[in-house]
Design a protein around this nucleic acid. Structure first.
Lengths: 187, 187
DNA sequence: CCACGACGTAACGGTTGCGTTCCGCCGTTC
DNA sequence: GAACGGCGGAACGCAACCGTTACGTCGTGG
């Protein structure tokens, strides 16, 4: 019975507001104003701010990155880096993710939700990526998928979401070369 | 004339409060309560919340990491990783830094301050580290210091401040091997 | 055509924080 | 011993937001 267009407007408003002021300063009233909606419409759907944000964010984040399988490790890497870097360069994502990550260190519920939505999926991607490369003989067996994920996502996240420095041309290509060499050396 | 013990109490309270609730929810009144101090004592020192936080944080962050120079690239790396990982595992730092980083994406003043306090210094460290290694012949000339910093700090920051996963034993040693191989391969 | 229910608006009392002001206390300085 | 000034405490008016409620409107289904 709840009107879907209203729900959509609220969801969009929450994401926008989250990007603009962050979770800490997000208020239900501001969301309602931005969505052009009464507070009642919001409280009819969720009980409070935390519940609302968690539901909306985990829904958006749940649309997960497809597992790459291009036939070569370099190809997989290139695809993955492209997808992730593109996502992290989107204004909303690059504002919301660090904010919620910081918030997660104080709020176990947020932490758990993000863990579920992001970290778990990353591990799966890492294991598949490395597993494929090992079985193709491109990487030595025993290569650590966690380390690989750190080496790939760490620098990207650092640059794009933290330092907010643009990626120089050829950066991703260099990353591919460099990470491949690194993983081979890891024994 | 301002009493230094009061000033110290306020500074400590700001850092603690910043770690506990984040910049967005930090209130002058809470700082005063925690410091056991009147609001007047705070307003006598700073004009508002932003000014106060910026001054205090940039002061703390200004006590910068010493530039490593142990005689070998591996030694320099080990020292640097030790220092940084130790710092990022401190509760207060690992709460405050991501929070302010996220806040920086919305507040140019915070961004500028952090840039000055952290990024600039990191670049200096990176250039010195790589410069030394190159002149020793341990790395090929033309090695990119920025890439090196990304490869070192990105994964560490990712694990410690974002994912909040503990460092497995031997992680740092593996990082050293891996990053060295990576930089040699970068051409 | 009527009942239902989601909707927006407005108001509620209560809480929190802002930045400011005034007060009385007390240690320092001269 | 008197003047000065930083101190804590209390209160100010103002604003924002909380979560809830009452009300009138409007579209849809029966």
């Amino acid at each position: 019975m709840l009107r879907v267009d209203i729900t959509k407007a609220i969801r969009d408003a929450v994401m926008a507001e989250l990007a603009e002021v962050g979770y800490g300063r997000l208020s239900i009233e501001a969301v309602a104003r931005r969505a052009g909606v009464g507070k009642t419409a919001i409280y009819r759907r969720w009980n409070n701010k935390l519940e609302m944000v968690l539901e909306i964010v985990s829904d958006v984040a749940g649309r997960s990155v497809p597992l790459p399988d291009t036939g070569s490790f370099a190809g997989d890497l290139q695809l993955l880096l492209m997808i992730v870097s593109r996502a992290l360069q989107h204004r909303i994502a690059s504002q919301i993710i660090p904010d919620l990550m910081a918030e997660a260190s104080r709020n176990p519920q947020i932490a758990e939700t993000l863990q579920k939505a992001l970290r778990t999926h990353q591990q799966a991607v890492g294991e598949q990526l490395i597993g494929q490369a090992v079985s193709r003989g491109e990487l030595p067996p025993g290569t650590d998928p966690d380390l690989a994920v750190d080496l790939l996502l760490g620098p990207l996240y650092w640059r794009l979401a933290v330092a907010r420095t643009p990626l120089p041309g050829g950066y991703l290509d260099k990353m591919i070369v460099v990470v491949t060499a690194a993983l081979k050396a890891a024994n």
